Computed example of a mutant assay.
Amino acid sequence: MAERHATIASSVGLHARPAGLFIEAVNKQPVAVTISKDGSTPLNASSILSIMSLGASHGDVVTLAAEGEGAEAALDELVALLETDLDAVE
């Protein structure tokens, strides 16, 4: 299983618009992705309810995990997205 850590860069954290953009990117991946914070139970990263329940704020570190063909590349792409201030992206 591939795993990556990402620091949330969006000023409002992983809420509203940033969460929507992240979920859109997760749904384009060839593998299922989970997300967790502070060692909590991994949640489905393609679910808005899961993302909102994380309560990930600016500067929080989350863990993404996936397995299967394409997992490494998928996680690299998603980490890069989370480490971008998605509030500033037009």
Rank of each mutant, 00 (worst) to 15 (best):
M1Y: 00
M1F: 10
M1K: 07
M1G: 02
A2W: 11
A2T: 05
E3V: 15
R4A: 08
R4W: 09
R4T: 02
H5G: 08
T7V: 05
T7L: 09
I8C: 05
I8Q: 04
I8E: 02
A9N: 00
A9G: 01
S10F: 14
S11P: 07
V12Y: 09
G13T: 12
L14F: 08
L14H: 02
H15P: 02
H15N: 04
H15Y: 04
A16M: 08
A16D: 00
R17Q: 12
R17T: 07
A19H: 06
A19Y: 07
G20I: 07
L21G: 02
F22I: 08
I23M: 04
E24W: 13
A25P: 01
V26M: 10
Q29K: 08
Q29C: 07
P30T: 07
A32H: 09
T34R: 11
I35H: 06
I35V: 15
K37G: 01
K37N: 01
D38Y: 10
S40G: 11
T41P: 06
T41V: 15
P42E: 00
P42C: 02
L43P: 09
A45P: 03
A45F: 05
A45N: 04
S46A: 15
S47P: 01
S47V: 03
S50T: 05
S50F: 10
I51Y: 04
M52V: 06
M52G: 00
M52T: 07
S53L: 10
L54A: 08
G55P: 10
A56T: 02
S57N: 15
G59N: 03
D60H: 03
L64F: 04
L64C: 11
A66H: 03
A66T: 00
E67R: 11
E67H: 13
E67S: 13
G68A: 10
G70A: 15
G70D: 15
A71W: 00
A71H: 01
A73W: 02
A73S: 00
A73R: 01
A74L: 07
L75A: 08
L75T: 06
L75C: 14
D76Q: 14
D76N: 15
L78G: 01
L78W: 05
V79G: 01
V79P: 03
A80V: 05
L81I: 03
L82C: 05
L82H: 00
L82Y: 09
L82W: 07
E83L: 12
D85K: 11
L86I: 14
L86N: 05
L86C: 13
L86D: 02
V89S: 06
V89K: 13
E90A: 15
E90P: 15
E90H: 14
E90C: 13
